[in-house]
Design a protein around this nucleic acid. Sequence first.
DNA 1: TAATGTAATTAGAATGATTCTAAAACGGCG
DNA 2: CGCCGTTTTAGAATCATTCTAATTACATTA
Lengths: 130, 130
Amino acid sequence: MTKYAKMILEIVETSRSHITAEQIFDQLRRTCPGVVLATVYNNLNRLWQDGLIRKISVEGIPDRYDRIARHDHLVCKGCGRLVDVDLNDMTEQLQRQVGVPILSYDLKLVYWCEDCLAERNTENDSAGAP
Amino acid sequence: MTKYAKMILEIVETSRSHITAEQIFDQLRRTCPGVVLATVYNNLNRLWQDGLIRKISVEGIPDRYDRIARHDHLVCKGCGRLVDVDLNDMTEQLQRQVGVPILSYDLKLVYWCEDCLAERNTENDSAGAP
DNA sequence: TAATGTAATTAGAATGATTCTAAAACGGCG
DNA sequence: CGCCGTTTTAGAATCATTCTAATTACATTA
């Protein structure tokens, strides 16, 4: 594991999760001013392929990187923001159901966060009022 | 619902799932030669926001669109290909666990498809042989 | 230590999916 | 018919990510 790989892994694991490549780049640059965005992507991809970090794709926003430790996510349908949530590990039961070996699973629960819910309500109020 | 929205919804629902915007565009163009890719995206986004279709983001490949009817997906870690899988509906138990209203959930099981597994094996064989 | 090969990094261009903008066309309604 | 909001068009623009080629660092062997 190279110097940058180590540092990037460290950043992903200690961040409050759901960090973008750009944010990682900014953080890394504080201690390594010469580093380049491509290096960040290279290492993120390597770490991801080696199963050391998670990559989370959400529609319409840049990919997020996350610690590997088991946990799931709430995704707001309005703003796309992610929130951690700890649910029971379902790997075994899922594997039993599908009948092929499962490396991992990615579970996103779609909901409306408070902010977006409030926003929708005010919109509807003003629109609905005659 | 406009003409194009209807047609695009029809295409998404009758396709064998996991279709890209580009593929929808190609298919739509057969009957509507004048149509433009932006129109496809406009309508897909509207349909998605209205909850009439699903949008599936997988790392590194263009977004896929899918019928809304409940089902889950296997995603190959190697090639990213999606396969439908029917698992029990877990909406209720998930909602009970998280304690907030869940609109829907998106479950992807990560595995190695047969092709990628075979490819990895041959690679490892040749690499491992002295 | 020098030489060598392999992998990592850099710089910057290129790609490609998606969105945006402004203008034109459409459709319903008074 | 003429007006207004919505939809579509055309094409430029954006922006995350990848690619290419050149350079550098590292590890190993001679």
